[in-house]
Simulated assay, not measured.
Amino acid sequence: MARTWEGPAGRLLLGLAVLLHRTVTDRAAKRRLEHWRNAALRAAYRRGVPVGVLASRTRLTQRWVRTVVTGGKPPPVDEAA
């Protein structure tokens, strides 16, 4: 009786699992993916997407999203009159 993973679909899924494991779990790959995520957050923010929506859709805190979209600087403070 042949093992199910020896078929073409099993080999393809095994290859996909190996690829994902190597690209997602590597420390450098994780940093690269976070860099791409942060760039996408900044671009969406520049296009007018509010911080609350960015935070809820990415399941990050609003404070973290604000830090990312401002480049690590504190957000600008509106002066009270």
Rank of each mutant, 00 (worst) to 15 (best):
T61I: 03
V53K: 15
R66C: 00
Q62P: 08
A55V: 13
R57F: 10
G52E: 13
V53I: 14
P50T: 10
P74N: 12
P74F: 04
G72K: 03
V51C: 06
Q62E: 15
V65P: 04
G72P: 08
P76K: 01
G48D: 05
V53L: 15
G71H: 02
T61V: 04
P76F: 00
P50L: 09
L60G: 06
V51M: 10
K73W: 06
G71L: 02
R66G: 00
R47D: 14
V68A: 00
P74Q: 11
P74Y: 03
L60P: 04
R46M: 06
Q62V: 10
V68S: 01
R66K: 13
V53S: 14
T67K: 09
R63V: 06
L60V: 07
V68W: 00
R47L: 12
P75M: 05
V49M: 12
R63Q: 12
S56Q: 15
R63I: 04
T70Y: 00
V53F: 11
V49Y: 04
V49F: 09
T70C: 07
Q62S: 12
R47Y: 07
A55L: 10
W64T: 06
T61L: 08
T67Q: 10
T67A: 09
P74W: 04
W64M: 07
K73M: 11
W64V: 04
V65S: 04
G48E: 05
P50A: 13
R59Q: 15
P50M: 11
R59H: 14
R57D: 11
T61Q: 06
V53Q: 15
S56Y: 12
G48C: 05
R59G: 09
G48L: 06
G71C: 03
G72S: 11
G72A: 06
R66I: 00
K73A: 14
R57K: 13
G71D: 01
R47C: 09
P75K: 03
A55S: 14
T70L: 01
P50Y: 09
K73P: 01
R59V: 14
R47G: 11
G52H: 10
T58W: 08
Q62R: 15
R59I: 09
T58R: 13
P76E: 02
V53E: 15
T61Y: 04
V53R: 15
L54M: 13
W64F: 12
V49S: 05
G71I: 01
R66N: 00
L60D: 06
P76M: 02
Q62A: 13
T70G: 02
G48M: 08
Y45S: 05
R63H: 14
Q62H: 06
V69K: 02
Q62G: 09
K73Y: 05
P75W: 05
T70E: 02
R59W: 13
P50R: 10
L54N: 07
V51Y: 07
P76V: 03
V51N: 03
Q62K: 15
R59Y: 13
R59L: 15
R63T: 12
T70F: 00
Y45Q: 03
R66S: 08
T61P: 04
K73H: 14
G72Q: 07
G52M: 10
V49C: 11
R57Y: 12
T58M: 12
G71P: 05
K73I: 05
V69P: 00
V68P: 01
R47E: 14
L54V: 11
V53M: 14
G52F: 12
R47I: 01
R66M: 07
